[in-house]
Structures are given as structure tokens and as C-alpha cells.
Computed example of a mutant assay.
Amino acid sequence: MSESQGLKQLRRSDFGYFLSYRTRWSDNDQYSHINNSIYYHLFDSVVNTYLIEHCGQNPQTSPFIGLVVSSWCQFFAPLSFPEVLDLGLRVTKLGISSVAYEIGVFREKEEHPSAVGGYTHVFVESGSRKSAPMRKEMKDGLEKVFTAKAKL
């Protein structure tokens, strides 16, 4: 099975955290489906909501920030306004100063994702931008949604 086919077969139960998103008219492009760039906004929203709510991250005051060093997305079915989406989050790799996220974009009540994407954060000191180990609270929170990536 190819990696793309494996991602398409993911289920809601493969993700440990969900955030709902009600699509907006402005999310659609001229072809009446959600514009590709919107998916990256969704990824950023679910990851940062999780970091704030479960990992003690405060974007305004934290001495450490996560920089995105890579990103990707696979599309399986078009989505458009007006729909409610469920954004599933899981961590597939957890290092000393880096973390790889995978996000499933599900139509409300559907079992398989319409898209799966993700990105990698490297945590750095806010001022110097030098790589820094994750704080214990951050790592503990991320471990709650960590799953070893299934063989695809």
C-alpha cells in the first residue's frame, strides 16, 4: 500500500485530539472548494490550540517558539462552504527539540479524512532562534497525542 493510500485509510480513532471548524464563504476558491492555502491555516489552528490548551504554550510570553521547517498535505475529497470540519491531531515523531504533527481533516461525522497533512516544528529560543530542548510541560502534553506512525 502506498503512503497516500495509507493516509486515506486513517480513521478518527487514529487521532487523539479534535478541534471543530465551521467553514466560511471566504474559504472557497473560484472552483467552489476550500482553497489549498486554507488547509495550512487549519493545521496551524489545531496545533497551536493544542499547544496552548495542553502544553502550557503562551505565544505572547513564552521564551521558546516553534518554527515550521517542513509541511505537506494530501487531498482525497473536496470540501467547501458550508461544512463543519473536525480537525484531528496526532504526533508522529517526538524529538528533543522537534515534533512532527499529522492532521486529519474530516467532514463532520465521516470516519475517513478528506485530507491529511502536517508539519514539523523545531523549538528555538525566541530571541536567539537557537534550537532548544522542549520544556517538560510541552513534551508531556505532546506525548498524550503521540502515536508511532503506522507502517504504510
Rank of each mutant, 00 (worst) to 15 (best):
F76T: 05
K93I: 02
F123M: 07
F106R: 02
S114G: 14
Q60L: 15
W72I: 08
P133G: 06
D140K: 13
K93R: 11
K109N: 15
W72M: 11
Y39C: 03
E108C: 13
F81V: 07
L42T: 10
I38K: 04
E143R: 12
R107Q: 14
S37K: 10
P82Y: 13
S97D: 11
E143Y: 09
P78V: 09
D140I: 10
F146S: 07
Q60R: 12
I96S: 08
L51R: 02
E53F: 13
T92V: 15
V124I: 14
V69L: 12
T147W: 14
V116M: 01
Y119G: 03
S98E: 06
F43V: 06
Q60D: 15
S37E: 07
V122H: 00
K136F: 15
K149N: 05
F64Q: 11
T61D: 09
F76M: 06
E53W: 07
G88D: 03
V105W: 01
F75H: 12
V68Q: 05
A115I: 09
N48P: 04
G56S: 08
R129L: 13
L51K: 03
Y50D: 04
P63T: 08
F146Q: 04
V105L: 03
F76W: 01
F75E: 03
H41S: 15
A115R: 05
V145K: 00
Q60M: 12
S71Q: 13
C73N: 13
F76H: 06
L42K: 00
K144N: 09
E83G: 12
F146W: 10
A100M: 03
V84H: 11
A148I: 12
R90Y: 10
P78L: 05
Y119H: 10
V47M: 06
Y101K: 05
L85T: 03
T92A: 08
E125N: 15
Q74M: 09
A132I: 08
R135Y: 09
P59V: 07
P82T: 14
H121D: 05
L79M: 10
A100N: 06
V99D: 01
Y50F: 15
P63D: 11
E143G: 04
L87C: 06
G95E: 10
V46E: 03
V68I: 10
R135C: 01
D140Y: 14
S126N: 11
F123N: 01
G56C: 09
A148F: 13
S98N: 06
F81M: 04
S45M: 15
E111L: 13
T147R: 15
K130E: 13
K149D: 08
E53Q: 15
E102M: 12
K136E: 13
Q57G: 04
E110F: 13
V84N: 06
Y119Q: 01
L94S: 05
A132R: 11
F106H: 02
L85N: 01
F43D: 00
G117V: 02
W72H: 12
R107G: 09
T49A: 07
Y40G: 04
V69I: 12
F123D: 00
V68N: 00
C73D: 00
V122C: 03
D140T: 08
S97H: 09
